[in-house]
Computed example of a mutant assay.
Amino acid sequence: MQAPWVIGLTGGIGSGKSAAAKAFAKLGIHTVDADDAARWVVESGQPALQALVNHFGEKILHADSSLNRAALRELIFTDAEQRLWVEQLLHPLIRQAIEESLAQARSAYALLVSPLLIESGQHQRVERVIVVDVPTHIQVERTLARDKVSTEQVQAILAAQMPREQRLGYADDILSNHGNLNELELQVAQLHKKYLQLLENPHD
């Protein structure tokens, strides 16, 4: 079976990527989340986890031998060389896991959800890019409520991500998520209809 059309979905922290992805999934669309793929490749028993332990030692493990992400983050957060080593180990495996999951899609098109869709170059893999967009102050409010972190931490994450205007420059389609869930789902339904029409008439 031919690999499906793949549409990328991205947005800054607290923009509502997960809610948008769920709305597409409710319409029967096969969705692959890059964050999920990043978890799959370091599950217990996976070679990548053993490679991390060989490199950093067992201090990066929980008592049940699963990866302690917070401990790993702490080790690489201030050490660019170690962070690069981890990225070179994991990124090819994550890409492979994403491709394997996309290949299983049986829906009209598939959705790749990734917070770093543009920064990682994954946007070059997709037919269209959807950006879930909200004003920055709403990003901060939602992230504070969801993650129970400090305002300083949220601002640091925002500073590390691609600026809003730059991200919007890559968008083929925009989901404006400053309203409620019903409004978001209506926009998703409209995009879904548009994509089905594009698939039927690709040269329109």
Rank of each mutant, 00 (worst) to 15 (best):
residue 1 M to H: 13
residue 1 M to T: 13
residue 2 Q to L: 12
residue 3 A to S: 14
residue 4 P to L: 01
residue 4 P to K: 07
residue 6 V to W: 05
residue 7 I to N: 02
residue 7 I to Y: 01
residue 7 I to S: 00
residue 8 G to L: 02
residue 9 L to V: 11
residue 10 T to F: 02
residue 10 T to W: 03
residue 10 T to I: 10
residue 11 G to P: 03
residue 13 I to L: 09
residue 19 A to E: 14
residue 20 A to C: 11
residue 21 A to R: 09
residue 21 A to F: 01
residue 27 L to Q: 09
residue 28 G to W: 02
residue 30 H to S: 04
residue 30 H to K: 02
residue 34 A to S: 13
residue 35 D to K: 06
residue 39 R to S: 09
residue 41 V to A: 10
residue 42 V to S: 01
residue 43 E to V: 00
residue 43 E to D: 11
residue 45 G to K: 05
residue 48 A to G: 07
residue 49 L to T: 06
residue 50 Q to H: 13
residue 52 L to Q: 03
residue 53 V to C: 03
residue 53 V to P: 04
residue 54 N to M: 07
residue 55 H to T: 15
residue 56 F to A: 08
residue 58 E to M: 01
residue 59 K to R: 14
residue 61 L to A: 06
residue 64 D to V: 08
residue 65 S to H: 15
residue 67 L to T: 05
residue 67 L to H: 07
residue 68 N to G: 07
residue 72 L to A: 05
residue 73 R to T: 13
residue 74 E to Y: 08
residue 74 E to I: 08
residue 76 I to P: 05
residue 76 I to H: 04
residue 77 F to R: 12
residue 77 F to C: 04
residue 81 E to L: 12
residue 82 Q to L: 13
residue 85 W to F: 11
residue 87 E to M: 00
residue 87 E to N: 15
residue 90 L to W: 02
residue 90 L to P: 08
residue 93 L to C: 05
residue 94 I to P: 02
residue 97 A to M: 06
residue 101 S to K: 15
residue 107 S to Q: 07
residue 108 A to S: 15
residue 111 L to Y: 03
residue 112 L to W: 06
residue 112 L to P: 03
residue 116 L to A: 10
residue 119 E to W: 06
residue 120 S to K: 07
residue 121 G to Y: 10
residue 127 E to R: 14
residue 128 R to A: 14
residue 129 V to C: 02
residue 129 V to G: 01
residue 132 V to N: 02
residue 134 V to K: 00
residue 134 V to H: 04
residue 138 I to L: 15
residue 138 I to E: 11
residue 140 V to L: 13
residue 141 E to R: 12
residue 143 T to I: 10
residue 143 T to N: 02
residue 143 T to Q: 01
residue 144 L to C: 03
residue 144 L to F: 03
residue 144 L to D: 05
residue 146 R to V: 02
residue 148 K to S: 14
residue 149 V to A: 06
residue 152 E to T: 12
residue 156 A to V: 01
residue 156 A to W: 00
residue 157 I to F: 00
residue 159 A to L: 11
residue 160 A to C: 07
residue 161 Q to Y: 05
residue 162 M to F: 05
residue 165 E to I: 00
residue 165 E to A: 14
residue 166 Q to N: 08
residue 167 R to S: 09
residue 167 R to Q: 09
residue 169 G to I: 12
residue 172 D to G: 10
residue 175 L to D: 05
residue 177 N to L: 10
residue 178 H to Q: 15
residue 179 G to I: 10
residue 180 N to H: 13
residue 181 L to M: 12
residue 182 N to P: 03
residue 183 E to F: 00
residue 186 L to E: 15
residue 190 Q to P: 00
residue 196 L to A: 09
residue 197 Q to L: 13
residue 199 L to K: 09
residue 202 P to R: 05
residue 203 H to W: 12
residue 204 D to L: 12
residue 204 D to I: 11
residue 204 D to Y: 10
